[in-house]
Computed example of a mutant assay.
Amino acid sequence: MTREVLRWVLAIFYLLAGIVHLARPAPFLTIMPAWVPAPEAVVLWTGVAEIAGAIGLVQPFSKKLRQAAAWGLALYALCVWPANINHFALDMAKPDGGLGLAYHVPRMFAQPAIIWLALWVGECLPLRRKTA
């Protein structure tokens, strides 16, 4: 039951994030590392990936499709981590410290947790069974 609830929570999170990427790309463009080619296209396709992953994660028809969506979202979270790190560095370089450590440090720790959560709710990780 907990896994299913968290699957829906994560899917809603990614769905909303994907919509925001598509509707308001400007904030994401400002944190994009300079070495990323075609940043507008990257933001667009990351939004599409988030929405597709969210839908795949909660569709009821195929466990394999849910697992593929979970792996996709986990890889997505790994791939956008450089933008989060870049945002951290840019913010901390501001005279006022931007959003500050209270925002950025938990965000850095949240990224691996989100990766793990996607894999767990997508049933991609080995499950422990209770022994009698």
Rank of each mutant, 00 (worst) to 15 (best):
M92C: 11
L117Y: 10
Q111I: 14
C124T: 08
N84G: 10
D91R: 06
P82V: 14
A89N: 10
A102F: 13
N86V: 07
P95M: 06
A118E: 02
A110E: 15
L125E: 01
A102L: 13
H87G: 15
R107L: 09
H104W: 14
Y103W: 15
A113T: 06
G98P: 06
I85L: 15
F109K: 05
M108W: 10
P82Y: 15
E123T: 02
D96L: 13
R107C: 11
N84I: 12
L127Y: 00
L90H: 01
P106I: 07
Q111P: 08
N86A: 11
P82A: 09
V121I: 05
L117A: 13
C124L: 09
F109C: 14
P112C: 08
D91G: 15
W116N: 02
I85G: 02
A93T: 02
I115D: 07
V121A: 03
M108E: 06
A89Y: 12
P126L: 11
Q111H: 11
W116K: 00
F109R: 07
L101T: 10
M92Y: 13
A102D: 14
D91Y: 09
R107G: 06
A83V: 08
V121D: 05
A118I: 08
N86R: 04
G100F: 10
H104N: 15
L117G: 02
I115Y: 04
L125V: 12
A93G: 08
P95L: 06
R107A: 07
K94R: 15
A89Q: 12
W120T: 02
A102T: 13
